[in-house]
């Protein structure tokens, strides 16, 4: 669309100019000027803010569910695991599970529903880039997970007697694992041919994050350990778990988070493509 030189200078009241015969483009002298497009970041911010406001109405009960679920799993695992590296992966896995529940499962359901009942038309008939809608929504869902993830992590540290010195790693784990999982959730929701399938894929993704993330990797059979390596949330779990070491290996943590970031970039790009495909049929 950069072939339209006037796009940035044209006021929203396009018809006034067109009524007076103003020219919009060389070569099509009678075409009316186009109203400006919404720019990427302001539109992203507007979508983010609108989605965040939904939390008050719709998301808070689900956030409690997500947090209690993770806390419950840790209490259950307390009977099986007693400290050491296994306790670290249980706490890290349960904390990242909150992110998987909201960013993957709920976001897949949200986009699946939006696509199924025509809600995407609203965004598709506004001059906004797919990336603004997908990123704004994904960022909002990732933000919903912040309180639950912190509560789960702190509770887990107290329960298993783990050090809290490096809990600040969550400030990197939540956005990066959030990007990877919400990108995956958005792509699943937008690509699923039916709404029920979007819900199913979201649930399955979350179940995978639960089983492969919370259960200690050392006890898994070979093929399942490979499946664990394929799941993006695993890298968030590993990065967080490494933070409990007395002297964390920052290079490995950086590598794990780098994997999350890379998956996030790819999956969000796929989601933006899927959005465009779903919006214009």
């Amino acid at each position: 669309m950069s072939a339209i030189p006037l796009e940035s200078s044209v006021e929203a009241a396009a018809e006034r100019a067109s009524a007076s015969g103003a020219t919009g483009r060389p070569g099509a002298s009678h075409a009316a000027p186009l109203a400006p497009r919404a720019r990427l970041l302001p539109a992203l911010a507007a979508v983010y803010r609108a989605q965040l406001s939904r939390a008050r109405v719709a998301r808070i009960p689900l956030l409690f569910v997500a947090t209690f679920q993770s806390v419950g799993i840790m209490i259950l695992m307390r009977g099986v695991v007693d400290g050491g590296s296994e306790a670290r992966s249980v706490v890290a896995g349960s904390s990242v599970l909150v992110v998987a529940f909201v960013a993957l499962n709920l976001l897949a359901q949200y986009f699946g529903r939006l696509r199924a009942d025509g809600g995407l038309d609203h965004y598709a008939t506004l001059p906004v880039r797919p990336a603004s809608v997908v990123l704004g929504t994904a960022a909002a869902y990732a933000s919903f997970t912040v309180p639950g993830t912190f509560v789960t992590a702190v509770f887990g540290c107290l329960l298993f007697g783990l050090p809290m010195a490096h809990l600040w790693i969550l400030a990197a784990v939540i956005p990066l694992a959030g990007a990877a999982l919400s990108g995956l959730g958005a792509a699943l929701g937008l690509l699923a041919p039916r709404q029920e399938l979007a819900t199913l894929f979201g649930q399955l993704g979350m179940s995978a994050a639960l089983l492969l993330g919370v259960l200690p990797a050392s006890r898994m059979p070979g093929p399942i350990a490979y499946a664990r390596d394929l799941l993006p949330s695993t890298y968030g779990v590993e990065a967080f778990a490494r933070g409990f070491d007395a002297h964390p290996d920052w290079a490995l943590i950086g590598l794990d988070l780098g994997v999350c970031a890379a998956v996030g970039v790819v999956s969000l790009a796929v989601a933006a493509w899927a959005y465009r495909r779903a919006a214009v049929r």
């Binding site: 400006p36 507007a46 025509g118 038309d121």
Partner: peptide, 27 residues
Amino acid sequence: AYLGQESTALDELTVSLAVETTGRLRG
């Protein structure tokens, strides 16, 4: 400007925020 039959995208927003957000997404 298009008014479709569905309002799912806006349902959970307040009236004020739905209008403001739409305006911002309209540039």
